[in-house]
Amino acid sequence: MESCLNIINKDEANNFANYLACPSCDLLFDVSMLADGESARCSRCGNFLTTYRTNELSHVIAYTSSALILLALACSYPFMSFKSNGLESVMTLPETALRLLSNGMPTLAFLVAAFIIIIPALVVVLILGLSVALKLERHYRWLRPAGKLVYHLQNWSMVEVFFIGVLVSLVKIGHMATVIMGASFWSYAVFSLFFVLSLSSLDRVQCWRRIGALQP
């Protein structure tokens, strides 16, 4: 559902809590009139602005805690195993980075670990912390920096890109050996689903409005 919004003259926008500048073109909108489930788009450049949901925080807490458990599982079991001529080698998720390290590429190892494990984990922990604090209506000084970090880091999580990488690897080696997907593969797949759900359920603008309302 898309709602028609009032465009605000820059001089009238004294009460910042209800006003929102389009992140693409800086046009100001009043977003305080949205009903449960309604979304808004910028009328000038078409950029998505916000969706308002009354019970979004409970959903976000459920999604993020499930995601954390799944990521812990994904890091502790074999991801894939490879069998050829009676020999077998097994790979875990952290090993995709650790083997690069033992091959003398510490920078690349760090980037891979950051893109597929560290950044996604950090984003999930930050969202969980934020939504628990907002649900309890407690104000902490770290709320604003945590919110900024979540929206800055989410573009750097590459869980879905990694899955395409897994698919390509399967095609590349499928002809020379038997490849078996382990428990970690499935946990990581479900993790990626909950990760996307956590991010899409916590609306950026509504998050700022809730933080703003808590400030003394």
């Binding site: 894939m80 080698s89 995709t96 690069l100 891979v112 395409i164 990488g165 080696i173």
Partner: peptide
């Protein structure tokens, strides 16, 4: 932008997965 990383991940996966000493 980030979809370009596919090939780097393929390398990371194959390096980690295929490690049969002296064979492959």
């Amino acid at each position: 932008g980030k979809w370009s990383m596919i090939d780097v991940f393929v390398v990371a996966i194959l390096v980690a997965l295929i490690n049969l000493t002296n064979l492959l």
